[in-house]
């Protein structure tokens, strides 16, 4: 395995009662790239994500992250290695403020999360760092809002800020622009481009203009298998892809 591959799967398979949601996927994500996973509904993209972050256990196959076999690891340990995911449904802590949401991630890193005998005010030391991250995603004016009150696009931004607080080497974004309006999409795409400057991003995304704009490599999945792989030009000119995916999308 070459050194510039950060994440690699071999024959990754997940069967639900005999039905292969993901069937023998070999994925190689280059360090520092933005890699998109696309495909029609039910192609196995989210299952793939759940397998990579260990929220599901694969039926067969191997997952190697930074040269380390993570196939049998616990999800929290995978996150600690620097492979951190977002969720399709916005994953915030709804009844905590924006600031508290980001601080939760920071306090895990700085490690006083087990201290049940100390006052919560020790967490104030993270406020400045948290506010920087919040400013980065354009939420400065919302820092004392309760997360549940935020509009959808802002929630996604908050989720990204929380994820970035961990400063992960690799980000897995599950449909980062799903359900967003035009303005929000542009802002999130900008944000992804910026955060990808010094880390690897693997994302599932339906919005093809976002994919075309951001991705270095695109893997097309259908029915749990890899149909094609390459940059946008290669993939979009592949006749199989046109038939299976683009044909539907661009008809």
């Amino acid at each position: 395995m070459s050194a510039d591959i950060i994440l690699e799967t071999e024959g990754l398979t997940k069967e639900f009662a005999g039905f292969a949601a993901v069937g023998g996927v070999d994925l190689r994500v280059a360090r520092g790239s933005i890699h998109a996973l696309i495909g029609p509904n039910g192609a196995g993209k989210t299952t793939c994500f759940n397998l990579l972050t260990k929220f599901l256990s694969p039926t067969r196959g191997r997952i190697v992250f930074k040269g380390q076999d993570i196939t049998a690891m616990q999800p929290a340990d995978v996150a600690r290695l620097g492979l951190v995911r977002s969720f399709q449904i916005s994953a915030v802590f709804p009844h905590m403020t924006v600031l508290e949401n980001v601080r939760i991630a920071l306090q895990r890193l700085r490690g006083n999360s087990m201290d049940f005998w100390r006052s919560r005010s020790v967490l104030d030391q993270y406020n400045n760092k948290a506010m920087e991250l919040i400013a980065d995603v354009g939420l400065s004016d919302f820092s004392n809002w309760t997360a549940v009150e935020l509009p959808y696009g802002r929630k996604r931004a908050l989720e990204i800020a929380t994820t970035l607080a961990l400063d992960p080497e690799m980000l897995l974004l599950d449909e980062p622009t799903a359900g967003m309006g035009h303005e929000d999409i542009a802002r999130i795409a900008q944000l992804i481009k910026r955060v990808a400057a010094n880390r690897t991003v693997l994302m599932v995304e339906h919005n093809l203009s976002v994919v075309a704009d951001l991705s270095d490599t695109i893997t097309v999945l259908t029915r749990g298998r890899v149909l094609a792989e390459g940059d946008y030009a290669t993939v979009s000119n592949n006749p199989d892809v046109r038939e299976a995916y683009m044909g539907v999308g661009h008809a």
């Binding site: 929290a76 995911r85 977002s86 969720f87 915030v92 802590f93 929380t162």
Partner: peptide, 14 residues
């Protein structure tokens, strides 16, 4: 309590 999968994804052994 608010969102356990998210806490796990942030690296907490819940």
């Amino acid at each position: 309590r608010e969102n356990e999968p998210r806490a796990i994804s942030l690296g907490y052994k819940t």
